[in-house]
Amino acid sequence: MQADSVGGITPAVLATLKPGEKILAAHGLMLFKEPSIKVGRRTMRQLGVSMGTYMAMHSRGDAEENFFFAEFEGPGHVSFSRDKGGEVRVVPLPPGQTWHLREGHLICFDESIRYQPVVVAQWQVRDANGQVENRYLFADSLAGPGTLVFQAYGNILSFNLQPGETIRTSTEGFLAAQNTVGVQVQWQFAAQLGTGNYQVPVLHLTGPGQVMVHSGL
């Protein structure tokens, strides 16, 4: 797949497919296509995601994973848009390289990429009634070879972490990381409230590997 970002306000992705070449995209993102492009579907099961994994993700709530991806087969052009502003990245993944991309940001990827929904981090918070709630950071795990296209909220800031090097991000700021990067939730003091401390969860990302953080929420 040859993929290009088009436009500066709310960019679209223009993918050029050779005859027989297939890409998968989140359903509902197509902007336009040439009539020569065939449209199909690829279920999670066909992608090797077990029903147990799929149901486990949904049982945790808030997971946005669809039951299937839309499949587009060349030859021709097809374009996608996530209907929002933010930087688009086209990332060629070498064989064996795996990225965890925050859910809701995936646009399209080559069919040669192996897909799996994962939970990158989880933590607990107390609501106003003192009830404990679980919070999860869902992500799409994508393993090369192939080309991956995604869009951030706002701009993307990239870091290449050395072994043992750590960067701290807000839970919302995390966009993507290689699977070699360790993700830990830590609680950071925010304010003194009466007799207690108010703390917020932050992510500690430890190298080696690349990390992407986005500037919007």
Binding site: M30, L31, F32, K33, E34, P35, I37, S81
Partner: peptide, 9 residues
């Protein structure tokens, strides 16, 4: 010459 588009586009 034809093209298929999303109706919001």
């Amino acid at each position: 010459e034809g093209m298929d588009i999303d109706h919001g586009a």
